[in-house]
Computed example of a mutant assay.
Amino acid sequence: MSESRSRWADIAGDDAGERYAARFAKLAESGADMHGEARLCAELLPPGARVLDAGCGTGRVAIRLAELGYDCVGVDLDDSMLEVARRAAPELTWILADLSDPADLGSVGAGSFDMVVAAGNVIPLLAQGTEARAVAGLAVRLRPGGLLVSGFGLDAAHLPLASATVTLADYDAWCAASGLALEQRLATWDGAAYDGGGYAVSVHRRTPGG
Rank of each mutant, 00 (worst) to 15 (best):
S80L: 10
E83Y: 09
E83M: 09
V84Y: 05
A85T: 07
R86L: 06
R87L: 11
A88W: 13
A89G: 03
A89C: 02
P90T: 02
E91L: 02
E91W: 05
E91V: 11
E91C: 06
W94L: 08
L96M: 05
A97I: 09
D98M: 11
L99T: 12
S100Y: 07
D101K: 00
A103N: 09
A103G: 05
D104I: 02
G106F: 01
G106R: 03
S107F: 10
V108C: 07
F113I: 03
M115E: 12
V116C: 07
A118P: 11
A119C: 00
I123K: 13
P124E: 07
L125I: 00
L125A: 00
L126K: 13
L126C: 10
A127H: 09
Q128C: 04
Q128A: 14
E131V: 11
E131N: 09
E131F: 07
A132G: 01
A134M: 13
V135F: 05
A136R: 15
A139L: 12
V140R: 13
V140S: 14
L142E: 14
R143M: 07
R143S: 06
R143L: 09
P144M: 03
G146P: 13
G153T: 02
G153V: 08
G153L: 03
G153H: 10
D155G: 11
H158W: 15
L159S: 05
S163Q: 15
A164I: 05
A164E: 11
T165Y: 04
T165L: 10
V166M: 02
V166L: 06
T167S: 08
T167A: 05
A169L: 14
A169W: 10
D170P: 02
W174Y: 15
C175S: 02
A176S: 03
A177Q: 12
G179H: 06
L180Q: 11
A181T: 01
A181H: 04
E183G: 09
Q184V: 08
R185V: 12
R185P: 15
L186W: 05
T188M: 06
A193G: 14
Y194H: 01
Y194I: 01
G197T: 14
G197C: 13
G197E: 15
V201W: 07
V203T: 04
T207Y: 08
G209L: 13
